[in-house]
């Protein structure tokens, strides 16, 4: 339960409220290893601890987390600078089914701050491109200013082996891309609905609508995976906060096969 101390190597402001931290162990030892979709508990000295998914490359040198300043702890976190020290416990939770999806088409649907937990999947898939069929990344945000990792997305869009579509809920005069909710990209996306694996991360409402749209397209609910969020204090199943019906999101999630949580996702105040 005692965190390991990491030093902030670099801070990158992604949007007005979202930032990326690159961390290295203070001890100089190797960083912890993780699977795409897993999260760590990040502890800010004297402030508190929050669960945040790893957003970096599974084979990268540093431990990378991207988050939005939304609560008390993340607001303090947003003021961290290179050289500051934070505590890290992890990794925790069930990863995305990157092994199960091998040999199949892959549809990755991200909404808003839901892209960072999916980015390690994209790194993995691009590093093992031959293992997968067609790969589609659909990403929706509120406005063009909210698009995360823009330079990287532009690089990915130039590739011939990745189909990438970005859409925004509200266009601006300088935005020439898609306007519309992320679900609107699904009907025309090139993948074989009968065998594709889908991975969804974003606000719970967006997950609900996206899963329904994928179902409409013909993707089986056992091939749809979603990443859910609940309050977490311990990340190991003791504190009780993350319960989602019978599930402990910290241990059984955050990534769930949709058919395991479908009924709960459509229920209020669970």
């Amino acid at each position: 339960m005692v965190p390991e101390l990491y030093r902030v190597q670099r801070v990158r402001q992604e949007t007005h409220d979202t930032f990326t931290l690159e961390l290295r162990p203070q001890s100089g030892a190797a960083r912890l290893t993780f699977k795409p979709g897993q999260f760590n508990m990040l502890y800010i000295f004297g402030t508190g601890e929050v669960p945040i998914s790893v957003s970096g490359n599974p084979t990268g040198a540093t431990l990378v987390h991207t988050t939005r300043a939304v609560g008390r702890v993340t607001h303090v976190m947003s003021r961290l600078r290179a050289g500051d020290v934070i505590g890290v416990r992890g990794p925790f939770g069930a990863p995305w089914p990157i092994d199960l999806a091998r040999g199949h088409d892959l549809v990755i649907v991200a909404g808003g701050i839901g892209l960072p937990p999916l980015r390690p999947v994209i790194y993995h898939v691009l590093a093992h491109r031959g293992d997968y069929g067609r790969v589609v990344l659909l990403y929706g945000t509120r406005t063009p200013e909210d698009i995360l990792f823009r330079a990287e997305l532009e690089r990915w869009r130039a590739r011939f082996d990745l189909e990438l579509h970005v859409t925004v809920d509200r266009g601006t005069p300088s935005w020439h891309g898609n306007v519309g909710v992320v679900t609107s990209l699904i009907p025309k996306a090139p993948f074989d609905a009968r065998s594709a694996f889908a991975m969804i991360c974003g606000p719970e409402v967006m997950i609900r609508f996206t899963a329904m749209e994928l179902e409409r397209r013909g993707v089986g609910t056992d091939h749809i995976y979603v990443s859910l969020e609940r309050n977490m204090k311990c990340a190991v199943g003791f504190c009780g906060h993350c319960q989602f019906g019978p599930h402990f999101v910290c241990r059984e999630g955050p990534v769930f096969a949709y058919d395991r949580v479908e009924d709960l996702v459509h229920r209020w105040e669970v």
Partner: peptide
């Protein structure tokens, strides 16, 4: 979906 402004902080 747009009305709910799901991505809003």
């Amino acid at each position: 979906l747009q009305l709910m402004n799901v991505y809003e902080n």
